[in-house]
Amino acid sequence: MNNTINQAYLKTRASVMAGQLIDATEVESYLHTPLQQLEKMFGLEGLSERGLSDAELNRTIERGLINTLMNELSILLRPLNGSARDILIYWSRKFELYNLKALIRGKLHNLPYDQIRESLHILPALISLPHEQLLRTENVPELLRQLEQTPYEGIARQARRVFEEKNESFSLDVTIDHRYYTGLLKHARACDSAEQPPLLRLIGSLIDRQNLPWLLRYRLNYMLSPTETYYLMIPSGRQLQSDLLKQLVNMQEIEQMLEALPAPLNDHLGECTNIMEVELAMGERLSYQARRCLSFSPSAVTRALAYLMLRELDLKRVFAIIQGRVLKLDEALIRQAADINTEVRHV
């Protein structure tokens, strides 16, 4: 996007939309806001009164929140064209990849049609797979054959190779994620030279958040070799670059690995003792960096992407709160699900 007016418009749009992002106090307040008011705030009026089953409730809330995000995405897309537009659309494909993983996992474990269908997000046609057709496939090879007829052909071909070699869902998930993030980088590199550095920094942060917890899991839980762990890492992280990753994969202890991280990452993760805490802390760090991008980035498309990333995190928390409250779960449990207790951690 090289049009100054469009840049200014998109920045203004993103700034206005940023007013919808929720801070720690607001999230906390949602725990006690009357449920009907909360539902209304997020376009889910009358949800608790419909007597839905747990599965229906999940789907309805998810669908409502994804719709909100997709509507906002369509607003942000309006002034964009070319590669800048493509990267925002590509980012939103992650939701369809959740579906793809659910489909593959379901087929791999021979789950019934209804059970797989219930776990799928309903998405706009722009990024959606032909769910009904894929659900009606009877095994993973057939599913992958069908996928090869869709825009996800590349992912399907790679997934097929992994399935034939390894025949388990974990490797397929990894392959799909890897392919997605590589694609995101590729799209960022296709943007204008002025947009690229801030975009790559933001995506680098996203990749760091993905890489570190998975590096720990591959090495410490799944006991993969340093070579294979490194191969499964997504290249071009922001702080976790290839040399550092090579050092980390050769270490044996979580403490040793966290100590080896550069400042200020090691300070921030210094108190973590397990992978879950590392994941939460990396999530907070990403959120902090995305907020900075949203406020100060010279690139309008980076701001838009940062906004979408933050909004998705917010909506996930809101989803957890509404769902927990409709199901009348214990507040402590809702807090944990919505990541409220860790909100005060400094970044």
Binding site: Q158, R161, V162, E165, K166, S171, L224, S225, T227, E228, Y231, L232
Partner: peptide, 14 residues
Amino acid sequence: NRENELSSVLDTAG
């Protein structure tokens, strides 16, 4: 003895 390590990563890489 790292041949197995290599063959696993080669499989993953297609």
